[in-house]
Each structure stands twice: as structure tokens, then as C-alpha cells.
């Protein structure tokens, strides 16, 4: 709960800053944050250093500077990370980055979701499903394609909290319910 509040506040601040800097800046910050997050995930040691309260803030800051140099981050993002270090919020970096992505998606009208089918779809089929859905939703769609034998057939689309269940399994279950209820 607290984590969420912190992440939202920092992410929003950086996002608003990017807005003032012009259109490209927001996207650039997003990518750079993602790069930094990748580095964090690739090197668990780095994450441990950030989370360790014994290590001095100064030391953490010099580590950040070096890593950022390697990654070629812009001044603004480096400053942001250093600021996080000053405030002792480095351990929230990943959730800040995640929320930043969410803000980006919202602004650009991008929806993220997953599409589950029983058999793997060919790439043409994937494209046609995506473009069909995009047309219906009037938004850009980023889809993860998954396969799950358990749904038997049809498809199951999950976007955010919404679930479009057109799988054979769900339909069979509904028939079962109807019969049980005697309708």
C-alpha cells in the first residue's frame, strides 16, 4: 500500500517533468528507466546494494553514476536516480518504473493484454486478430500470445482487469450451470 503511494508520487513527478521538456523526452525517460531496471534485474547484486541500509548514500550514489555512465543515461534520469538515493527510496525503483510505464501507456492510448488460445496461432493470424481488436477498441494494443490446452478451444482475452472469455471451456461450464439450475 505504502509502496504504491511512493511509486506513484515519484513516477508522476518525473512524468510531469518530461511533459514540460517536450514530447520526445517522456518516451526517452521511459526507455532509460527500463534500461536501468533491466540492469537491476540482470545484476541482483546491484539491487542488494541499493536495498542495503548499511551502505552509505554517498557510495550508492557513486555506484549509480558509474552504472548510468555505462548505460548512457541522460542527465535528467541520472539526477532522478541520485535524488531517489538521497531520499532513501532506491528500493522502490522497480515499482516506480512500472508505474511510469503505465502512465506512458495511458497517455499514448496503448492497452496491454494477453490472448490465450488452445493452439498456437500463426503470425498472420496473430496480426489479423490484433488489428481486428485494435479497430474495435480504437486503441493500440500490445498483446502477449499464450497457449493453454486447458481452455479446449476459442479464445480468452485479458486486458487489464477485463476478461473476454470466449473459450469452449467457459461455454461448457455455462451449459453445465444452466442444466444444474434447470433452466
Amino acid at each position: 500500500m505504502k509502496e504504491q503511494v511512493i511509486a506513484k508520487r515519484y513516477a508522476r513527478a518525473l512524468f510531469a517533468l518530461g511533459q514540460d521538456q517536450g514530447a520526445g523526452a517522456q518516451k526517452q525517460y521511459g526507455e532509460e528507466l527500463a534500461r536501468f531496471a533491466e540492469a537491476l534485474e540482470a545484476a541482483p547484486l546491484l539491487d542488494r546494494v541499493f536495498r542495503n541500509p548499511v551502505i552509505k548514500i554517498e557510495d550508492k550514489k557513486s555506484v549509480i553514476s558509474k552504472v548510468a555512465e555505462r548505460l548512457g543515461l541522460s542527465r535528467m534520469v541520472i539526477n532522478f536516480c541520485l535524488f531517489l538515493a538521497d531520499k532513501g527510496r532506491l528500493e522502490h525503483f522497480l515499482s516506480i518504473q512500472a508505474y511510469y510505464n503505465k502512465l506512458m501507456d495511458e497517455q499514448e492510448g496503448v492497452l496491454r493484454g494477453s490472448l490465450v488460445t488452445a493452439i498456437e496461432l500463426s503470425s498472420e493470424k496473430q496480426d489479423s486478430v490484433r488489428s481486428g481488436l485494435e479497430k474495435q477498441l480504437n486503441k493500440n494494443l500490445v498483446l502477449d500470445f499464450e497457449t493453454d490446452q486447458a481452455i479446449l478451444g476459442g479464445l480468452l482475452l485479458r486486458i487489464g482487469d477485463k476478461l473476454y472469455d470466449a473459450s469452449i471451456k467457459a461455454q461448457l461450464e455455462q451449459v453445465k450451470e444452466n442444466i444444474k439450475r434447470g433452466e
Binding site: L163, D165, A166, V175
Partner: peptide, 17 residues
């Protein structure tokens, strides 16, 4: 049961989860 299946309207169920 056969009737149920034959007359089953294929409706896509949209739910928030």
C-alpha cells in the same frame, strides 16, 4: 442436454476480474 447445446447462443462473456 442436446437441446441446451443446440440452442446455445454463443455469447462472449465480458467480465471484470
Amino acid at each position: 442436454i442436446q437441446d441446451q447445446i443446440a440452442n446455445y447462443e454463443q455469447k462472449m462473456e465480458m467480465t471484470e476480474t
